[in-house]
């Protein structure tokens, strides 16, 4: 259709597209104008001595610090440690969440045994368990990974369980008339039908994994982005703290984009329908 229109009105379409792209550029600039303005004011304030660097480092200083931290390998090394913890916790938490949701979603007995405790446990703030985790698992890698896994498992469980339960019973009925075995019903109907909800759960899980990691690394750690920031606090290095914050922000954005990309790939059948909200 678009091609057809282009062929019919080549000149007009080209100029139309041009004006569109200029308009788009203007809008793009406008959206980031306020951000740029804040940055400029921030920098000006710091240079005029209105913002003491003890409280807040200037943007230029932050970029400079980030660069030197990269050169002396502090940032990459700590980043790698943090990524490893978040990744291990995510994998573990998703595995546990999926397993529990399958048990609860696929059988009534499983629902009675698993769902009630999960619904109760989810109201507990996971971060409040930090002291207990330190007592139980010490201050090594294990409590950090487990803390991430604990936070991750709830959104995965809740969304996948909801997804399994909200599958249209008419599709199951159809499968029975076609003589599908229970295993095939699970494989061909329940799992693909609940996949959108699982992916929504994973998106929340990724966000939560960073949150859990920040706390775990700031309470007791000798490496990781959180540790780097706590260390900087002792020396009043607000620039390093802000670099850490920026890294967390970029990681959060990137991981969210990765899950969105996976959604686009796995859910091609939905076409361009919007991503629905989930349960956190």
């Amino acid at each position: 259709m678009v091609e057809l229109v282009m062929n019919l009105f080549p000149a007009r379409t080209a100029s139309h597209q041009l004006s569109l792209s200029i308009g788009g550029l203007l809008r793009f600039c406008r959206r980031y104008l306020s951000v740029a303005l804040v940055l400029v004011l921030w920098q000006a304030g710091a240079q005029a001595g209105l913002i003491p660097s003890r409280l807040l480092a200037s943007p230029v200083q932050i970029v400079h610090t980030a660069w030197s931290l990269t050169l002396d390998h502090t940032l990459p090394q700590n980043l790698l440690v943090s990524l490893g913890r978040a990744g291990a916790g995510l994998v573990l938490g998703i595995a546990v969440g999926v397993a529990l949701a399958l048990v609860a979603g696929l059988s009534r007995v499983g629902e009675d045994i698993v769902d009630a405790p999960m619904q109760m446990a989810r109201t507990l703030p996971a971060l409040a368990l930090v002291p207990l985790f330190i007592l139980w698992f010490g201050i090594g890698e294990l409590p950090k990974i487990l803390l991430v896994a604990l936070g991750v498992k709830f959104p995965v469980y809740l969304n996948l369980y909801k997804g399994i339960r909200s599958i249209d019973p008419k599709l199951i009925e159809l499968a029975k008339t076609l003589g599908l075995s229970r295993w095939k019903i699970i494989r061909d109907i329940i799992i693909p039908g609940a996949l959108p909800d699982l992916l929504v759960g994973i998106r929340f899980a990724v966000g939560i994994s960073w949150l859990m990691l920040v706390v775990a690394e700031q309470v007791n750690a000798d490496s990781g982005i959180g540790h780097m920031m706590m260390d900087a606090e002792d020396f009043l290095r607000t620039d390093i703290i802000l670099v850490g914050l920026a890294v967390y922000a970029v990681l959060g954005l990137l991981s969210d984009q990765i899950v969105r990309l996976a959604e686009g790939r796995l859910l091609t059948w939905r076409g361009r329908t919007a991503v629905q909200g989930g349960t956190r």
């Binding site: 008419k170 061909d188 109907i189 693909p192 039908g193 996949l195 859910l267 939905r270």
Partner: peptide
Amino acid sequence: EHRLLPWKN
């Protein structure tokens, strides 16, 4: 209702 699985072609 057709009851086609939306995730299968």
